[in-house]
Write a protein that binds this DNA or RNA. Sequence first.
DNA 1: CATGAATGAGCCTTCATTCAT
DNA 2: CATGAATGAAGGCTCATTCAT
Lengths: 188, 188, 188, 188
Amino acid sequence: MGRTVGSMGAKTMEAIAQAGLDLVYQFGYEGMTLRQLAARVGIRQGSLYNHIKSKQDLLVHLYRRHMETLLAALDAALGGIECPPEQLRAFVDFHVAYHVERKREVFVVNSELRSLEPTNHTAATDLRRQYERRLIAILSAGSAEGTFAIADAPVTAYGILGMLSGICTWYDPKAAWAASISRQYTSR
Amino acid sequence: MGRTVGSMGAKTMEAIAQAGLDLVYQFGYEGMTLRQLAARVGIRQGSLYNHIKSKQDLLVHLYRRHMETLLAALDAALGGIECPPEQLRAFVDFHVAYHVERKREVFVVNSELRSLEPTNHTAATDLRRQYERRLIAILSAGSAEGTFAIADAPVTAYGILGMLSGICTWYDPKAAWAASISRQYTSR
Amino acid sequence: MGRTVGSMGAKTMEAIAQAGLDLVYQFGYEGMTLRQLAARVGIRQGSLYNHIKSKQDLLVHLYRRHMETLLAALDAALGGIECPPEQLRAFVDFHVAYHVERKREVFVVNSELRSLEPTNHTAATDLRRQYERRLIAILSAGSAEGTFAIADAPVTAYGILGMLSGICTWYDPKAAWAASISRQYTSR
Amino acid sequence: MGRTVGSMGAKTMEAIAQAGLDLVYQFGYEGMTLRQLAARVGIRQGSLYNHIKSKQDLLVHLYRRHMETLLAALDAALGGIECPPEQLRAFVDFHVAYHVERKREVFVVNSELRSLEPTNHTAATDLRRQYERRLIAILSAGSAEGTFAIADAPVTAYGILGMLSGICTWYDPKAAWAASISRQYTSR
DNA sequence: CATGAATGAGCCTTCATTCAT
DNA sequence: CATGAATGAAGGCTCATTCAT
């Protein structure tokens, strides 16, 4: 019965990823169903399997997509900056700005790790570690040149990331008080 | 047919709540099953319904139990303190200490709100609001007496709670660096 | 909601096995569906899983049931007979009579081995080997006492079984010519 | 989207039939899938429909191919022989030799009749009946000339065919004991 | 001819829930 | 109170088949 309105060949996968992210954000991975997903995309349930291998595969796709975009954007943000303090400042700026703009992705990535099967869990954790390594490298370089007085670069890195992520949970650029916070921060 | 090892009359409900918390923490509300729960408690699936009305009812129970304990403990922590600055300090101390000790409950309560049906969602939100009101009251009192220079007590309260909750996501009393953080904080 | 006409507790499993055998015989293991099975038993599809673990488990049950009944009946048929020639005659009588009476079971057991998963396949083959060993033992004993002049007991056993099974594929006690065959055979 | 390695124009249908026979033999008609078939042939699933009309059509093709080859080979084997006893001997020789060499086809044709839809079932049965008629004719001729003392040619024919088919289920020319059987038989 | 993507029906299985015993 | 067996709904996934490109 051929192709129907609402399906556009190669763009279908993109639509699946988009709708998938929404649904996982809204209902959780276990809570969403592929029937919902298909309905949002505008295709029948079975057709999803022309684009993903399984429901789990969709989650993996979401993870990988997020992490790879994140890593690429970070590299772009740090590009050309040489001295560690500036790199650190750029890292912090980037991290908060990027994560605050993508609350859905961040929430999904943080709360659905438990739904990844062992193999995929490992792969996802590896990607995250690559991101952490960027910060560790900055801290190590600054420590080596004597600019940063830190005892242990990895431990410090985890501390910084934890605190920054904490910010992302409560900072909402559209909230009433965001303006005042922003003013204080940028007046450094 | 008769009672089995593992079920001890009145203690069964407590076991269900305990195991239920573990499972929701581990797999999420949608991800856990009543089969698993019954297995951990040591009874059959149908027997659960002698103690809970439904799966949703279990989640509600978990929420209520957590919030009521929290409110009671807060009242105990604030009891007898009169001046707002001391109350605020006590609130902060209490909040962090309490939440850091109950990461499982906190995680569940924060991430499974979406799984509460509308009515229960409202009830849970109401309980949380009671907690927030305690802080708002402290801030208002301090503002009224001129000790705190804040523009808007509720907004400030949400900001403080968000930041404190942020801490709870990364602070781990058993982590390598916890000692040094703790030293800095208590030496105020 | 509660128990319905057509389901009688402990007898349900027996009904499942009966209907299951019919269906596998009629449509093959892959060709039958659990919907059909449930319909024939008079319960809903999901209720089957209170009695079997899976569709595969049903097939395994059918195999085991057949083989264990067969082994027990064989032992009963050979009981008390001492001399190998008489044992052999009893074995042949038994084998043909038993298999001709259970064409459905025999067909299923012979044609659905390929649908058994590796582990179950092995288990089924082991049971069959037990049956063969009974015949091998008879032949060996007869050979040892000099009554049978055979070069290799196992090989002879497989030959005999193959030929007897061949008979079961075409001999039909209800067919037009069965009477004359029977007359010839019993006139030995 | 041109043509791919593995598909060679006109030879594709032959490859489909070959692979189809293998798969039906291995998994049964219901158990095999067109995905597997396409994979073995080296084309995509949809491309199969350039060569077969449906899955059922493949099975019909397999049946027809087997039966027509069989009938032609039988006619060749019987060609020129005039006297019924010699014809009967030739028929038996041919039947066993041919079927023993094509165990896969024979198994499929015997065990998948139930998967043929009514119309095709009839057609297949008709072809088989043509084969049987050859034997019936031989028996009738022999009976008419007084060489064979048989009461009913068709019934005798079915009996002979059943027994010969029985042989084909256990006789394996590559088995350890085949040599001795063969010696006995040919020394008639 | 081959392909990729779509379809709808159906499959096995699991789930939360109920209730007679 | 606990149990075993039942229920209906749903879930993820596969299948044969179609057709525009």
